[in-house]
Design a protein around this nucleic acid. Structure first.
Lengths: 217, 217
DNA sequence: CGGACAGATGAAGAGATCTTCATCTTGGTC
DNA sequence: GACCAAGATGAAGATCTCTTCATCTGTCCG
């Protein structure tokens, strides 16, 4: 998936963090630091990441002005945790999305991908690898022998494997995706959950790559 | 939301159940009972509900034939619970959806709506009523005073209220939506969960309508 | 062979969640 | 006002979920 993304952010550190991450994932990005610039440029982009704490215009004025101009580009808003209510109140009809700072980059990436999904290519309801499938709505693993209910963690873990089929996933990667940003590196939760997944979907499906991590086969 | 829906189902009882429900929700429907008819008609509809257990052609052949003809109409498959694996395996790339029989009508309706959502109108991430919002992804209620985490049941209950704002919801409706099809009519779970929701979002937001049920105000 | 380390496994405990039940309160009706 | 039904509430127990910890097993390498 590709796309041109406009980052409207005045803090250089955050702008750079977002820009690097998005570029590393194949998106084209530009950064502007003011609401005025955002207004002039937004229409030429596929998506806008908009910080609410701008120096000149506040973010919502920018958003409203864009919509008044008939610009329909999806906007993902970055906001401080303590002004969530105002932010959410400003999202009319779900056309836009928001994230509270600080945020994990993966979360932003997921939302960007969601908004840029080509129309006509609906969201997957099922992920499949070989004879193993995962129903994303019912949170069930589907095997030739039948369906198995998964817990939230098991589900998140299996989803991660299914989204990276055949690829070795390192513990650290797994921890940061499934357990979040500030994980305890000394924990063996991953092992334990791989174990319980294996019990449910069959041990042979999750291959151990010694010294590296695990791989879905 | 409107749309023309083709129901491909040979069991009259189920066909009627689905047709009535969809019509009651503003959709235009037609029913055919054979795969051959499905093939000739599918292209003129916005969505197809396709039973896999047809007398002439099996459902998958119909689906494959449609795709071979270049018909991209979204298809929702109805299948027996014990052939889930085959069904899921047949869903290529998540372009289609499936449901196991027996199913709750509301579930079908939700999937129909999902598939017929006009492109460019992304799925809502937040539902709002007055100063109360619900973030559908984080499962948090957002109030002027801050955000509150909800449990799975609380979330489902509040979502139901927010999708029917200002409308009185009867216990039975609530039970069938949030607790599923085969609920115990003698239970007071609804009361208990209304209570716990009130504690979290403020008692004044959920109004009691004596002898009827509850309403979000 | 033996040591060291990576991974596998089982069990236990904390905490959350869901539901049921018993009791109390409120509103409506006669 | 008295009564009854509907609803509100608190508490307890069953179950599930997640995580940690201790121990066991297997692999690699000298």
């Amino acid at each position: 998936m590709t796309g041109r993304i406009l980052i409207v952010e005045d803090e250089a550190r955050i702008a750079s963090f977002v820009e690097k991450g998005l570029r590393a994932n194949g998106f084209t990005t530009s950064v502007v630091a003011s609401g005025a610039d955002a207004l002039s440029w937004a229409a030429s982009f596929d998506l806008v990441v908009l910080d609410l704490g701008l120096p000149d215009l506040d973010g919502f004025s920018v958003l409203r002005a864009l919509r008044d101009q008939g610009v329909a580009t999806p906007v993902i808003i970055l906001t401080a945790r303590d002004s969530v209510h105002d932010t959410v109140a400003g999202l009319s009809g779900g056309a836009d999305d928001y994230m509270t700072k600080p945020f994990r980059f993966e979360e932003l990436l997921a939302r960007v991908r969601l908004r840029l999904r080509p129309p006509g290519v609906p969201e997957a309801t099922v992920l499949t690898a070989g004879s193993l499938s995962l129903d994303l709505r019912t949170r069930q693993a589907v095997l030739p022998s039948g369906s198995v209910d998964l817990t939230a963690r098991e589900f998140a873990l299996l989803e991660l494997f299914l989204r990276h089929p055949g690829q070795v996933l390192v513990r650290e990667q797994i921890l940061s995706h499934v357990w979040g940003y500030d994980f305890d590196p000394g924990s063996n939760v991953v092992d334990v959950y791989v174990r319980s997944l294996r019990r449910k979907i069959g041990a042979e499906r999750l291959e151990t790559v010694r010294g590296m991590g695990y791989r879905l086969s």
